[in-house]
């Protein structure tokens, strides 16, 4: 790659995960560009938490995310279709139990 093309290269893409409050999982919030991990966290703070959305941030470079192949959907997910007994829906929950 020539020097010129190199200097025009964009910063790598990062995926951002935000934990909205203690006890909850980090959830994917979106992605952004940054030169390194420190800058990615700062950028994430500025882009995704300015309205009090979070108390913790994870960032990971997008190239390290490995995704399942959409073409494999049938093998991967369809076998679960007729296994209704895997859902814990056969219990009677007391009324006072919320958030289930």
């Amino acid at each position: 790659m020539s020097q010129k093309a190199d200097s025009k290269r964009e910063w790598p893409l990062w995926e951002v995960f935000i934990r909205s409050k203690a006890g909850l999982d980090h959830k994917h919030a979106g992605s952004l560009h940054a030169a390194d991990a420190d800058m990615a966290i700062e950028n994430a703070r500025d882009v995704y938490t300015r309205r009090m959305e979070g108390i913790s941030i994870w960032v990971v470079e997008s190239k390290y995310i490995h995704a399942s192949d959409p073409g494999d959907a049938e093998i991967l997910y369809e076998p679960a279709n007729d296994k209704i007994y895997r859902h814990p829906t056969f219990y009677n929950l007391p009324d006072e139990l919320t958030h289930m």
Binding site: W11, L32, H33, A34, E42, N43, D46, V47, R50
Partner: peptide, 11 residues
Amino acid sequence: PVLEQDIAITN
């Protein structure tokens, strides 16, 4: 210079 820094500096 980039969207992320535009937001950072206006914050």
